[in-house]
């Protein structure tokens, strides 16, 4: 098991998504192994696993028909487990195949409205950042989807944590709109540093850089 897990990790590092099914088989056991990698300690592996789920959503939705329900459940604290990677997966699956996430997507979208889970002192910042990324992926495809939560999303650009500000900025850059543009202009001097997963690469960036790139993207 450990050997094959390592081989799976290598394929994801190399972004060889079709090869994952060819090597490990197009069946549920492979999908479970991928779910397990959402908890990988190495951030890049987790994010590539997210991209793999997006690939599955587009190419083999039959393999992940049940997945979204389970990912949503893992965000419920009654589940007894922590839904690391779940919001990102739902965002990526939704971006590639919106039909797969119809039932669950509102839970992710409205997640940021709950102060218990999204504001200090009890929040899980990693999950919140994942949700913000998912909003960018979902809203980037269809901005209307996330309009209801725009005011709250905008407020996260003022969060004390740079990772939250940075991801909120990136997300706004995907979604667009006059309010987004205006808020991004206010972030172009923010020197806070964070990790951003974009175009399947994980890079350290300042919030300022993210904001500037987002504005450039919106103005193209």
């Amino acid at each position: 098991m450990k050997r094959s897990r390592q081989a799976l990790v290598e394929l994801l590092r190399a972004r060889k998504y079709p090869e994952v099914l060819v090597t490990f088989g197009a069946h549920r056991k492979t999908v479970r192994s991928l779910r397990s990698l959402l908890y990988a300690e190495e951030a890049l592996v987790k994010w590539r696993t997210v991209s793999m789920f997006g690939w599955l959503a587009a190419e083999r939705p039959d393999l992940i028909a049940q997945e979204v329900d389970r990912l949503i459940w893992s965000l419920n604290d009654e589940a007894g487990s922590i839904g690391r990677g779940a919001p990102e997966c739902i965002g990526e699956i939704g971006r590639n195949n919106i039909g797969l996430v119809q039932h669950g997507v509102d839970v992710v979208i409205h997640y940021i409205e709950d102060p218990e889970t999204c504001r200090p002192p009890n929040r899980n910042t990693e999950i919140l950042v994942g949700v913000l990324w998912a909003l960018g992926r979902l809203g980037g495809g269809k901005p209307k989807r996330v309009q209801k939560v725009m005011p709250v999303l905008l407020s996260f650009t003022e969060d004390p944590d740079a990772a939250v500000r940075g991801m909120a900025a990136w997300s706004l850059g995907q979604i667009g709109g006059a309010d987004a543009t205006a808020r991004l202009q206010g972030l172009t001097e923010d020197a806070g540093v964070t990790l951003l997963y974009e175009d399947e690469q994980l890079n350290e960036k300042t919030v300022a850089a993210i904001a500037r790139e987002a504005l450039a993207h919106l103005n193209r």
Partner: peptide, 9 residues
Amino acid sequence: VSRVCEIPT
């Protein structure tokens, strides 16, 4: 409800 609960579940 609609914000924190998946209604079909």
